[in-house]
Design a binder for these strands. Structure first.
Length: 931
RNA sequence: GGGAGUUUAGCUCAGUUGGUUUAGAGCAUCUGCCUUACAAGCAGAGGGUCACAGGUUCGACUCCUGUAACUCCCACCA
């Protein structure tokens, strides 16, 4: 088979994904194996795949694929979230484009459009995940508005209402004028804005000279002012308390009151009180029995509805329907015209904005449904304890403080939304102030008749006058049941699936939704399953661009993911995003890492090509005897003749007798790599257990590129058109396969492809189960390290002396322990293109001298010798060693150190000293020899 | 305003309870190579007072205190 020059991902990605799907590898059903379950954080149905999803789902896929290969029953559940605000906004926008307004539609008509929209666009993001290779059990795809799911949400609402945890009340809520709905506190994002502080004077009502001046950032609300408040100890205003002033423009008489709440130092020390439009003012209003006078409608436009007729004048009429921000400017102009505006100052303040629409939030008095969170979490102390005691482990653990802090300061949760897309609140009203909460309309009537008696109509027909609450529930009030209800744990309690899969193992999500979602799932888990929803929570970072800016649509710095997959391949994208993604840190996305991933694919691809070249040329010959390292005479120079022989004309000829040494060195190399592979396997295993995915990938990358390709393959590589020993070839295929196993969770496509190219297979890598680790002798690792060290050192010498790669050198080693070189000398000779390795007892004249470790190397070359350069290098090394020796000696001459340090530390220091002294001696000797 | 975190090579990060050679990796940079798997490559090299100032200790990148810078979370002083 002819392999392409470079790895071409597009064709094989499609091929393998279909193959995996057709074989049902991603499907999970309960069995006797240990379960490893992840429920995917359901993306919004409106969503398209972005870098955040890419990171998040790659991590989950790595964990799931690894678990599958560990022989666990891996189950990864996909799904989408109905995302009420976001989706409803999209549907409204879509309708607007078609010239339809939401208000012209009935609820049923609107929902029909919404479902159509969902069917059309809702699955896009899931399809995109397939392109990334995500091994999700698609048969389990769930949606937060599936019929059973819907019912479960309603059931939970009713239960919580019964328990007195859900209540309805008139409260100040966060109002989003853009989507015309209330929001929970968590959905409000505070942003720093440059605003103005307006100093407005309210003249005394009795006509006396002057008035009282307040500072406000929101002059548009002054028409709703019902009092002015000062601090009772503020001497400036003591004599004014109780007096009346006139609200500018509207001339309403309001009182100056006093309350500790007001800070004398801020602004003018006088505060205008607008209970309908500010949370604190509202508290103040309640305390002082002030009425809340609403002057803004649900869209944030001025309304005269609650004003008394006698206060309405032409100016005020002209405000009707004016947007709050336009009104702010208008009123500023108008109060200046009547001389009530003292000055305007620049001011930085924080304003709340809607997480979804970005609109500035209004505080608005409104009748909503709430959940009493303090009461709720008090029912199960595990909710807070599990995280604190790390029964549920957060990665990184710092987030457990965030969690604890939020729990300590938890506030009531506003769960009703003035939207249609979502679970409709199961509350029915009779129009006379009676409310019935029940799971269905029929239930509601039953309950109603029990409580209030059955109403009958004069006509004798049954009374059907209850109407259901128009609002729907906060999306998070459904998603908090996700890990339970995807297994029907609410709608069909104690079924086999929920018993098997719950609690799930790992949740991978963004820290931004720790309160929205993570915390609430923990609450729901302990409340409805009496058990944690997951064991580990891995918080991903935020994907930022190279300049560290968060990726966003507005900035346009979010790359097109599918385009990237087309360009680099899914494996390369996965590699790129993971390699730069240390646990819990933000990731700076740089296309360069994708390129690195692509190059990595190529590297492996080319290694396959190399093996394919060897495949047809293996030799079955048993190990041959070699003459490696053998002594020629008893006391003469010990010579090893490696991979060459003398030609007739006496010149050394390389490479025509490679087989002579490749036997031994090949097997030694295989033993070395096997040991190294085992070492890395256990390292990777430890890292993955600690969720250090990025580090694990780095280690695997280096194992494949450096140890396998750069070292091992070069060591076992036969000479040009020479055969490779069968044993070594088979070992090499085996190693390569195991490397693919190790890498597969990270880069599933290329590894599966290579796995099959390497050998005839009965299985697929996707479901291949890792073998148990093998015990290996680690002594060989130090031999390998020594070999690498010397190869690099001598290559450096070649480089520095400008010896051409093709020029053969001759190496003489002066060492006290020639035996340590026995197993590596033939490889060494080949890797540095040396005609032979000889052992000598004395310096060899006319050679380049270098010292590596404690041994001296004399390199014979045809190049003219650069003595000055060599001296310089040796002297530099000598200076370094001497400096080092001084620091060690200083330590050892310190009596306190000798007295206090642990014996093993002392021994190490003594060895360092001896080593350094020995090396210094060797280098000094070499330097003398060069004179 | 409260809390948490970060600060190690040009960039992104490792550095496990203080002591294995006066700090490691990848990327980037530089030098030399179109060597027969791979120039999307090979070989090699350079580069850091571990943010700053103190302290504890025989010994500090590592522990403590303070300072500075940056980041995040929480909190609606109008």
């Amino acid at each position: 088979m002819e392999l392409s020059k470079n790895f071409e991902p597009q064709a094989i990605e499609q091929k393998w994904y279909s193959h995996w799907m057709n074989n049902g590898y991603f499907k999970s059903v309960p069995d006797e194996r240990e379960a490893y379950t992840i429920v995917m954080p359901p993306p919004n149905v409106t969503g398209v795949l972005h870098m955040g999803h890419c990171l998040n789902n790659t991590i989950q896929d790595i964990l799931i694929r690894r678990a599958r290969m560990q022989g666990k029953n891996a189950c990864w559940v996909p799904g989408t979230d109905h995302a009420s605000i976001a989706t409803e906004a999209k549907v409204v926008a879509m309708l607007r484009e078609r010239g339809i307004t939401k208000s012209s539609l009935s609820r049923e008509e609107f929902l029909k459009y919404a479902w159509e929209w969902k069917e059309k666009y809702g699955g896009i993001i899931l399809e995109q995940l397939k392109k990334m290779g995500c091994s999700l059990d698609w048969d389990r795809t769930s949606f937060t508005m599936d019929p059973d799911y819907y019912k479960s949400v309603i059931e939970i609402f009713v239960r919580l209402h019964k328990d007195g945890i859900i209540y309805r009340g008139l409260r100040m809520v966060n109002w989003d004028p853009a989507s015309k709905t209330a929001l929970s506190d968590e959905e409000v994002i505070f942003k720093d804005v440059d605003s103005k502080l307006y100093y407005v004077t309210y003249p005394f009502a009795d006509g006396s000279e002057g008035g009282i001046t307040v500072a406000t950032t929101r002059p548009e609300t002054i028409l709703g002012d019902v009092a002015i408040c000062v601090n009772p100890t503020d001497e400036r205003y003591l004599n004014m308390i109780g007096k009346e002033v006139l609200v500018p423009i509207i001339d309403r008489k309001i009182k100056i009151i006093a309350d500790e709440y007001v800070t004398a130092d801020f602004g003018t020390g006088a505060l205008k009180v607008t209970p309908a439009h500010d949370k604190n003012d509202n508290e103040l209003g309640k305390k002082h029995n002030l009425r809340a006078l609403n002057t803004l409608d649900e869209e944030g436009k001025f309304t005269l509805e609650e004003l008394e007729d006698d206060l309405i004048n032409d100016t005020i009429v002209s405000y009707a329907g004016v947007d709050r921000f336009a009104l702010r400017k208008k009123i500023a102009v108008d109060i200046e015209a009547i001389g009530c505006l003292q000055k305007i100052e620049d001011y930085k303040s924080q304003v709340g904005t809607s997480e979804r629409t970005g609109a500035v939030i209004e505080s608005r008095l409104s009748l909503q449904w709430f959940m009493d969170m303090k009461k709720f979490i008090a029912t199960n102390p595990e909710i807070t304890a599990a995280v604190a005691e790390e029964k549920i482990k957060f990665h990184p653990s710092k987030f457990k403080n965030t969690y604890a802090h939020w729990m300590d300061n938890i506030k009531d949760w506003c769960i009703s939304r003035q939207l249609w897309w979502g679970q409709q609140i199961p509350a029915w009203y009779d129009g006379e102030g009676n409310v019935i909460v029940a799971e269905t309309e029929d239930e509601a009537y039953k309950e109603y008749s029990k409580k209030h008696g059955l109403k009958s109509l004069p006509s004798g027909e049954v009374w059907r006058g209850l109407f259901q609450d128009e609002d729907c529930l906060d999306t998070w009030f459904s998603s908090w049941l996700w890990p339970i209800e995807v297994f029907k744990g609410i709608s069909n309690p104690n079924n086999d699936e929920i018993k098997y899969y719950y609690p799930t193992q790992t949740l991978v999500t963004a820290p931004e939704i720790i309160f929205f979602w993570v915390a609430r799932m923990i609450m729901a888990g302990y409340t409805y399953k009496n058990e944690m929803p997951f064991e580990d929570v891995y918080f991903t970072g935020i994907v930022r661009d190279k300049q560290g800016r968060k990726m966003s649509k507005q900035l346009g710095n979010s790359p097109d993911l599918l385009g990237l997959i087309d360009q680099y391949g899914a494996d390369a994208v996965r590699f790129g995003i993971m390699i730069a993604s240390p646990a819990g840190n933000d990731i700076l996305f740089d296309e360069g890492t994708l390129e690195q991933g692509r190059n990595f694919n190529n590297k492996m691809w080319n290694a396959v090509k190399l093996l394919k070249m060897w495949e047809g040329r293996t030799t079955d010959d048993g190990p041959r005897t070699t003459r490696v390292g053998q002594r020629t005479t008893d006391d003469g120079p010990r010579t090893t003749r490696v991979g060459q022989r003398t030609t007739d004309d006496g010149q050394l000829k390389t490479n025509d007798n490679i087989g002579l040494w490749s036997v031994d060195s090949g097997q030694w190399s295989a033993l070395w790599f096997e040991t190294r592979l085992n070492e890395v396997k256990s390292e990777v295993n430890d890292m993955l257990n600690q969720f250090k995915l990025s580090e694990a990938l780095k280690v695997i990358y280096s194992l494949i590129w450096d140890d396998f390709c750069s070292w091992y393959l070069e060591w076992v590589k036969p000479g040009f058109e020479q055969p490779i020993e069968k044993v070594v070839y088979d070992k090499t295929v085996e190693f390569f396969s195991q490397l693919m196993e190790l890498l597969h969770p990270f880069m599933p496509f290329v590894t599966e492809e290579i796995y099959h190219l390497l050998d005839e297979r009965k299985d697929d890598l996707c479901t291949h189960v890792y073998a148990a680790p093998v015990q290996t002798d680690e002594k060989i690792l130090s031999e390998g390290a020594l070999l690498k060290n010397i190869i690099s050192g001598l290559r450096d010498v070649r480089n520095k002396n400008q010896i051409k790669p093709k020029e053969t050198i001759k190496v003489h080693i002066q060492t006290a322990e020639a035996t340590v070189y026995k197993s590596i000398e033939s490889i060494l000779a080949k890797q540095i293109n040396s005609a032979f390795i000889m052992y000598v007892n004395d310096a060899v004249a006319g050679t380049i001298t270098t010292v590596i470790g404690k041994d001296k190397f004399y390199i014979e070359t045809e190049q003219p010798l650069n003595m000055a350069g060599q001296r310089e290098d040796l002297e530099k090394e000598l200076a370094h060693l001497k400096g080092f020796l001084i620091s060690v000696e200083k330590k050892l001459s310190n009596e306190k150190f000798v007295a206090n340090a642990k014996p093993e530390v002392l021994a190490i220091e003594n060895k360092k000293k001896a080593d350094a002294e020995e090396k210094i001696g060797i280098i000094e000797e070499s330097l003398r020899g060069m004179e």
